[in-house]
Amino acid sequence: MNLYSIIYLGLIVFLLYLLFTVGFPFLMAIIIALLIDPFVKVLTKVFFGRRVIASLVTCTAFFVIVIGSTYLLGLKGIRELIALSRTVVEYIRDNYDQLTDLTWSAQSFIGPYTQDMNLQINDFIKTGIDSLQAVVLGLSNALISLLQGVPGLLLDTLIFVVALYMVSMTLPKIRLRILSIFAEESKHKIEQVMQKLYSAIFGFIRGQLLLSFIVFTLTLLGLLIIKISYPFATAGIVTLVDVLPIFGTGSVIVPLAIFYIIKGQYFLAIGLLILYAVLFAFRRIAEPKILGDAMGIGALSTLASMYIAFKLVGAIGLFLGPAVVILVSALISADILKLNVKV
């Protein structure tokens, strides 16, 4: 690999990093504009070639569908969380005496043991309490950070909305301007790269939808088998949370299992933990394969790129890593980037 290729590759990675961080609203606007462009083209014919009107109608319809779906799903999820919170509070209130007796029984059980054993058990209990306090503190800090980030989130959302309308209206012109930068003999190569990126974007979204559908189905079947209340709503919440790389299915299923352990419903708790293990294994095994096939890159490349990028830049690396691999692969296949390694 010569120095030019190294500099070129480094510049590509740096530009992608900027897009996935400070330029994320514009990146999302470009991606959504590409996804809804087939509908814009159809409406452009309906409105006699007036792309501006077609883009306005399509983008507005997109936002109405997204906001409506988010509202309905969010409202359902909040209702289920409120119902679960009430169940927990009512259980503690109704079983306060039993919980107190359980505490005294635990203390009586510890009494006969040696002093060293008592110290070890006390240290274990203290560690558990400290861990619980750390979790509560972490959630509090996360909530504070979220509230502090609301102004920035609103600004990013506004930029995304405006950018989506503008990109959708001028997408053909943007494509022509990008091609005009390059020499005539190189334009077909650039078109190859753009086509592969377009296919990869669709493939990634299709892969994520397939993963979410399978996660929802597995969760729903598991909840129906162990007969958990509100199986459809719970499966929906688990699926939505599973999309978030930081949280995952465990952030819903594990606390729910702990709650049922406290209630003494051990069958439900064990069933939930088994379900979590199945979902965890499925995600780790199937995700690289499904996303790799959908995006046109190998499963090993997908897994390695996600892991390395995650270690380097955090959660955003789960998306940045495969994006780098896809772009580099497209540039190599179009004979724009040449990696001649001599041994």
Rank of each mutant, 00 (worst) to 15 (best):
I30Q: 11
T58R: 04
F247G: 01
V42L: 12
L171S: 08
L327N: 10
L210H: 00
G321K: 10
V46W: 05
V328H: 09
A315F: 15
A235E: 00
M295Q: 13
G250C: 09
S251R: 11
F259V: 02
G10L: 01
F48I: 10
V324T: 05
S180K: 08
I270K: 07
L320Y: 11
G138W: 04
I214N: 01
F247E: 08
V42W: 13
I125V: 11
T70N: 04
I30K: 11
L119S: 07
L27V: 15
S229H: 07
G292R: 03
G49C: 12
V162K: 07
L35T: 04
S168W: 04
V324I: 01
F247K: 03
R177F: 12
L275A: 08
R206P: 14
G321D: 08
I181V: 01
L197S: 04
A315Y: 15
S140T: 02
K126L: 15
K263I: 04
G207T: 06
L147E: 02
V313G: 04
Y276H: 03
I190V: 04
V136F: 14
P112Y: 06
S180E: 04
A235V: 05
V161K: 03
I6V: 09
A163L: 02
D97M: 14
K338N: 14
F24M: 14
V328M: 00
I274K: 05
I78C: 05
S85M: 01
Y71G: 00
A163V: 06
S105D: 07
L312N: 08
I228Y: 13
T219K: 00
F20M: 14
F213S: 07
